[in-house]
């Protein structure tokens, strides 16, 4: 198990180093998230919908779609001069490759969230107060599930002609339970309800995380072995 995790970290570090050099996906995702916030802000009628009702939806729409930008790039870098062959011919397990990609994607999504959440708070004048830490925890839990599913489908879609279309088409149906649980628990917190009222949604989020991480890790080798 230690070998699997070590190899996964080596692969994640490599992916993060590439993203740090190019910054193409990160800038795209951050700008997409900020533009999303602005557009929703101007489309919002505060007399019809309160900020506490609107913000969870806005937050999870922009996280879901900005995350897809990074997920698409995850296996895209492996198509450069068939780099994936070098990875698959190495002695690391297929599970390590999946987990490495997923760890890099998780850090990518978390970095986007670190910018987008404060931006949301400022734009919508959210009374974050003492719910900041639970909100960050929910964002992290949701990111785990989104990244597990997205990484698997990124691997499947990367060699197709319509990869940029296929990835969201395949991923979004599986994102639904994660996004519902995340947005519902976020709504409870932002509306000032006690955290125990969000506990059922958070438990659901954890359950889906466990299922998706395990299922996608097991399924990944079948997407690369002929």
């Amino acid at each position: 198990m230690a070998d699997v995790l070590f190899a996964a970290w080596v692969i994640a570090r490599k992916d993060l180093a590439i993203e740090f050099r190019t910054r193409s996906a990160f800038f795209s995702a951050v700008i997409f998230a900020l533009l999303g916030l602005v557009i929703f802000y101007f489309a919002w009628d505060p007399t019809a919908v309160t900020v506490n009702d609107l913000a969870p939806g806005v937050l999870w729409v922009i996280f879901t779609f900005s995350g897809l930008l990074g997920l698409h790039r995850s296996f895209g870098v492996e198509t450069e001069d068939h780099a994936i062959d070098g990875l698959l011919a190495s002695p690391v397990s297929r599970e390590s490759i999946f987990l490495g990609k997923a760890i890099a994607n998780l850090i990518f999504v978390a970095a986007v969230q670190l910018i987008a959440i404060p931006a949301l708070v400022v734009f919508y004048n959210l009374p974050l107060g003492n719910v900041a830490i639970p909100l960050i925890a929910i964002a992290f839990l949701a990111a785990v599930g989104l990244v597990a599913v997205g990484t698997l489908f990124s691997a499947m879609a990367v060699n197709t002609r319509l990869a940029e279309l296929l990835l969201p088409m395949l991923s979004l149906p599986f994102f639904v339970p994660i996004v519902i649980a995340a947005s519902q628990s976020t709504a409870k917190l932002l509306s000032g309800r006690p955290i125990v009222e969000a506990a059922a949604w958070i438990k659901l989020l954890i359950a889906f995380d466990i299922i998706f991480v395990a299922a996608c890790t097991v399924a990944y080798p079948f997407t690369v072995d002929d």
């Binding site: 001069d81 780099a83 070098g86 011919a89 002695p91």
Partner: peptide
């Protein structure tokens, strides 16, 4: 174990261009 014994060279470089 088998893969660890092999070195593969191809006309595709299998390198990451940004690194």
């Amino acid at each position: 174990l088998a893969r660890s014994r092999v070195g593969l060279i191809s006309h595709r470089t299998m390198l990451y261009e940004a690194l």
